[in-house]
Amino acid sequence: MTEPSTLDGLAAVLWDMDGTLVDSEKLWDVALYEAVETLGGTLTEEQRLSLVGSNMDDTAAFLLEVCGKPVTPESIAEMGEWIRRRTANLFDGPLPWRPGAQELLELLRAKGVPMALVTSTERSLTELALNTIGREYFAATVCGDEVDGLNKPDARPYRLATELLGVPASRCVAIEDSPPGAASAAAAGCTVVVIPNDVDVEPGERRVFRSSLVGLDVPTLTALLP
């Protein structure tokens, strides 16, 4: 368990991964469009964007339904495994950073602010992404296959992260880019900095919008807390 930071009341920063730290949603695009091709179907841009922030089982079920295929536990597992293998191949190399993300990670670590990674991506793929991002930044990581099916937008992923860090959610800032992620962090009681990427996020309680991570620092994040 990490000791809470005493820096002006900021206990921790909780990071989403895909589309927030790294621009990996573009790689998911490749895997999902190819998956639909194997099913003999097509995926519209609107349908693809509706999957941003989704977990693997929900994504696989959605693609099967869109393509008019039977949606069963077996077909979901088979489709999920296909997507998993293809995405692992795409993740097996350097991933592009989102603007300002790497600099903010470095700054927060230098200031001693605890951090956690909270992602809907499964552990095996997250570990590949961490080869680019760096495991050393995070005192805890919560992945999509580690929350008993209670993925974003449920509060469980962010609540688990705060429990692992031993900090109150009310003193945490979460950084997100998607509607499910923002809803999850807010429901857990975090202040949410929303950096929209591919999908618009509606205004809501505990949400603060920024155009990018560039220029964010500890005083700025602390000032957002209630």
Rank of each mutant, 00 (worst) to 15 (best):
A174T: 03
L105Q: 00
D145N: 10
E176F: 04
A161Y: 08
L164A: 12
P180D: 11
L49Q: 06
V194W: 00
L43G: 07
D16Y: 08
G204Y: 04
K111I: 03
G112H: 07
G53Y: 05
D154G: 04
P4L: 07
A101Q: 02
T222N: 10
I175A: 05
P157F: 00
A169D: 04
R135F: 09
S211C: 01
R206C: 10
A183M: 02
A186S: 12
F209L: 03
P70Y: 10
E34S: 15
P219H: 14
L107Q: 14
A161L: 06
L104R: 04
A31K: 00
L14S: 02
P219F: 11
E25C: 08
L221S: 06
E163W: 06
I195Q: 04
E176M: 11
L104V: 12
V36N: 10
K111F: 10
E136H: 15
E37W: 09
P114T: 04
R207W: 11
G166F: 11
G149E: 02
E81N: 13
S184G: 03
T87N: 06
A110P: 07
W82Q: 12
L216D: 04
L90P: 02
D57T: 12
V199W: 04
L117M: 13
P70R: 10
R123D: 14
C143Q: 09
A61K: 13
G9F: 11
A182G: 06
S124Q: 14
V113P: 06
E106Q: 15
D148E: 15
L7S: 13
E45G: 12
F91P: 01
N151F: 06
G53F: 04
A11F: 00
D18C: 14
M56R: 15
N197L: 00
A101H: 09
N197F: 03
V192Q: 08
R171A: 14
L105Y: 03
L108P: 00
A174P: 06
A116I: 05
A88N: 13
